[in-house]
């Protein structure tokens, strides 16, 4: 057993453990922290595959941005720590059944067929340098340019729908109206009163 395989097994076991903690722990903060751990561990698995750019992006985007935001939201909301309900126990056999059936299928197909096989279908990838980042950038802006643009459209759609779903104009709020503030003239504010007698 070489060192790479040992590292893989250690980290994937930890990954499975943290993923289980995410869905079983009753405290949402704990779940979120475990999710952060699971992202770190999957980043290590990416590194083992030699995909250093993707692993760093995973940490930067998911851990650095998404999960921190998520933790803030969880901490700001007043969430009661959920107790394990009866439904949890009721659905447990079904879940275990689906899990076992799925895994049995995967094992049946893949373990039998993959024994002692050295097979790689992915052949023609253009590699221009040893750096992952450079290769990805090259592919993204040449071969997959249209796909890249469509991803931009998806982001635009995300922005519009997030705004439309959350924005609500509250009529009680006090707004400043800069246009009317600027266009105000002396007449509107000052009133010269003449002809007063003491």
């Amino acid at each position: 057993m070489n060192i790479e395989l040992i590292t893989f097994f250690i980290f994937s076991l930890l990954l499975v453990f943290t993923c289980l903690k995410v869905i079983t722990s009753s405290n949402p903060v704990l779940s979120a922290v475990n999710l952060v751990f699971s992202f770190f561990l999957s980043a290590v698995l990416w590194l083992l595959l030699g995909a250093e750019f993707l692993s760093i992006i995973l940490i930067l985007v998911y851990v650095g941005a998404v999960m921190v935001l998520f933790l803030f939201v969880v901490m700001m909301l007043d969430i009661n720590i959920a107790k394990k309900s009866a439904a949890y126990i009721n659905y447990l056999p079904l879940g275990i059944g689906i899990f076992l059936a799925f895994n049995a299928l995967v094992i049946f197909f893949f373990v039998n067929t993959f024994e002692n096989i050295d097979y790689n279908a992915v052949k023609n990838i253009e590699i221009i340098s040893t750096s992952n980042t450079e290769n990805l950038g090259y592919l993204l802006f040449t071969k997959y340019l249209v796909e890249f643009e469509i991803a931009g459209l998806i982001l635009l759609l995300g922005i519009i729908s997030a705004i439309i779903l959350t924005y609500k104009k509250n009529p009680k709020n006090k707004y400043q109206n800069p246009t009317s503030q600027i266009s105000v003239s002396k007449k509107d504010r000052l009133k010269v009163i003449t002809g007063l007698k003491e």
């Binding site: 997959y144 796909e147 469509i150 991803a151 998806i154 759609l157 519009i160 729908s161 439309i164 609500k168």
Partner: peptide, 23 residues
């Protein structure tokens, strides 16, 4: 397959927003 996935994502994202439109 990549283009197919992107198209399906664009469609589904817009449908999520449209379904929840009536706040």
């Amino acid at each position: 397959m990549l283009m197919l996935y992107l198209g399906i994502e664009l469609l589904s994202l817009s449908l999520y927003a449209l379904i929840g439109f009536n706040k």
